[in-house]
């Protein structure tokens, strides 16, 4: 994206070390975050998250599939990211598609180890395959964290039509989607992680890097953290290395940061749910 001069980078690096970043934030301060669910009414669940100037939408659609022999009672969660050209002309055409594929691979690995027994309809026969499509409309750094929030918020407000299993004569179960549009179930999101990206800039570690700050980071690590602070997976992106001791510190920090983020996000979703008459703002007003 925008190329920085060496002097600009040094200014940013020293700023992070002194705990006064370019925009005045501290090392552990996130930019203002806005979350709104239900913005794509045609999807089963959707959420838009704005993290500073990073803007992503996540949409949930569920379908059924026959589970494999080694995981007979678990559903599947698949994520797909598309970097829209609206975020940057860099994401136009084939180049954008390729970069999106790379990010999709990282994301799916991060969410791979979640247990999805709650997505089972009839063991060995049918389970839910939940697809989450993410569109990145604007990117000013920290895309992964924003995606993590959007995915969790979308899943937490998803309404999937119930499938009832009825006994047939020969003992074969017949599965039918319920006719009642209000007969839905919402996935349990307590084991859906938040993504916490930590960047080492100079001698210090910080959260929520902007585009400019990302360019000054010598080591960036994305950690999937659960509500209880457990680390589900870790990813390092880009070049750079750290001492093992620093890495252990990073993991501990991510754990406590993740716990706070989960609780803030969930209380915001609860507040949104409690609003009496909620109109969807989306991109208007």
């Amino acid at each position: 994206m925008v190329r920085l001069s060496p002097e600009e980078k040094i200014y940013i690096i020293h700023g992070v070390e002194d705990n006064i970043r370019e925009d005045g934030r501290s090392q552990t301060q996130y930019r203002p975050i806005e979350v709104e669910t239900g913005i794509i009414p045609s999807a089963m669940g959707s959420a838009r998250v704005k993290l500073g100037n990073t803007d992503v939408i996540a949409c949930v659609k569920a379908d059924t599939f026959t589970p494999t022999w080694n995981k007979p009672d678990e559903g599947k969660l698949q994520l797909h990211v598309d970097l829209s050209a609206t975020a940057s002309p860099w994401f136009e055409g084939r180049r954008g598609e390729q970069t999106s594929e790379e990010i999709t691979t990282i994301l799916n690995k991060a969410y791979e180890s979640i247990k999805l027994e709650s997505f089972c309809i009839v063991p060995q026969v049918k389970c839910w395959l939940v697809d989450v499509d993410i569109s990145v409309l604007s990117c000013d750094g920290n895309m992964y964290d924003a995606i993590g929030f959007a995915v969790k918020a979308a899943l937490a407000t998803t309404m999937v039509p119930k499938i009832v299993a009825s006994e047939e004569d020969e003992g074969e179960k017949e599965l039918q989607i319920t006719d009642d549009p209000f007969d839905t179930w919402t996935p349990n999101v307590s084991n859906i992680p938040c993504l916490v990206t930590l960047s080492k800039v100079g001698d210090s570690v910080m959260v929520d890097a902007t585009n400019k700050e990302e360019q000054c980071s010598s080591f960036t690590c994305i950690l999937a953290v659960t509500e209880t602070g457990k680390i589900l997976s870790t990813f390092k992106v880009g070049p750079g290395s750290v001492q093992p001791v620093t890495f252990s510190k990073l993991i501990l920090e991510a754990s406590s940061i993740g716990r706070s983020l989960h609780s803030e996000l969930l209380s915001a979703l609860k507040k949104e749910n409690g609003l009496r008459k909620r109109e969807i703002h989306g991109f208007l007003n």
Binding site: S42, A43, C59, D82, S84, E97, D133
Partner: peptide, 21 residues
């Protein structure tokens, strides 16, 4: 003038595999 028309994967009731191209 350089244009690109793209439909998000979630834009239709049937999920789209390819947004553009």
């Amino acid at each position: 003038v350089n244009c690109q028309y793209s439909m998000a994967a979630f834009s239709m009731s049937e999920r789209k595999k390819r947004n553009r191209g």
